[in-house]
C-alpha cells in the first residue's frame, strides 16, 4: 500500500557547522607556524617603504644566518637625544661604526662553526642616506671579514 508522505519541507537543509573548528584550527596552525615576531624595535626610520627599489633582487634564504644593520634617521622620539643625522642601529640600540666588529663577532659566537661561512649581513639603509656612512660600514665589515652582504631592497614593479 502506498504511503502518503507528509509534505516535505522545502529549501536546502542547514549546513553542519561541526567541522568549523577543524577548519579554523587548520588556519590557526598555518599562521602560528608562518608567523615571525619582530625581534627588535626599530629606533631608526627604515620601514619597508624607505628601502631603495631594485629589479634584480634575490630572496634571502636561511633567515637564522642573517644579521641586520639598520641605518637611517633616528625616529622622532629619539631625535632630541640622537639628532637627525642618519645613525646605525645594531640589535636594539644605537651604535657607532666601531661597534660593528664586536657585533659581528658576537653574532658569530651564537652560530655553529660550520655555518659561519654562510652568514650574511643585511644592510637595511634608508634610500636618502649618504654613502659615506655606508662606506664606513662596508670597510668595517671587510675588517671583520664578514664579506657576504645584502643590500636590502624592495621589488620594483
Amino acid at each position: 500500500m502506498a504511503k502518503f508522505n507528509r509534505a516535505k519541507k522545502k529549501g536546502a537543509p542547514g549546513i553542519s557547522t561541526a567541522s568549523l573548528p577543524d577548519i579554523v584550527f587548520m588556519l590557526l596552525f598555518f599562521f602560528m607556524i608562518s608567523t615571525v615576531m619582530r625581534e627588535v624595535e626599530l629606533k631608526v626610520q627604515v620601514s619597508a617603504g624607505d628601502l631603495p627599489k631594485a629589479t634584480e633582487i634575490k630572496k634571502l634564504e636561511k633567515k637564522s644566518l642573517v644579521s641586520y644593520i639598520y641605518v637611517g634617521k633616528p625616529r622622532r622620539q629619539y631625535q632630541s637625544l640622537y639628532g637627525t643625522e642618519p645613525r646605525i642601529q645594531l640589535n636594539a640600540s644605537f651604535a657607532t661604526v666601531t661597534d660593528i666588529r664586536d657585533y659581528i663577532i658576537s653574532e658569530r659566537e651564537q652560530r655553529d662553526e660550520a655555518e659561519i661561512p654562510f652568514m650574511t649581513t643585511s644592510l637595511k639603509v634608508h634610500q636618502e642616506t649618504r654613502m659615506g656612512i655606508v662606506t664606513d660600514i662596508k670597510q668595517e665589515l671587510r675588517k671583520a671579514s664578514a664579506l657576504k652582504i645584502n643590500y636590502s631592497a624592495r621589488k620594483m614593479d
Binding site: 634575490k58 634571502l60 642573517v66 643585511s122 662596508k138 657576504k148 652582504i149 645584502n150 636590502s152 631592497a153
Partner: peptide, 14 residues
C-alpha cells in the same frame, strides 16, 4: 601579529 616579510635585496661579496 603575523608579518610575512621576506627580506630581499642585492647580494654582493665584499
Amino acid at each position: 601579529t603575523t608579518t610575512m616579510d621576506v627580506d630581499t635585496g642585492i647580494l654582493r661579496q665584499l
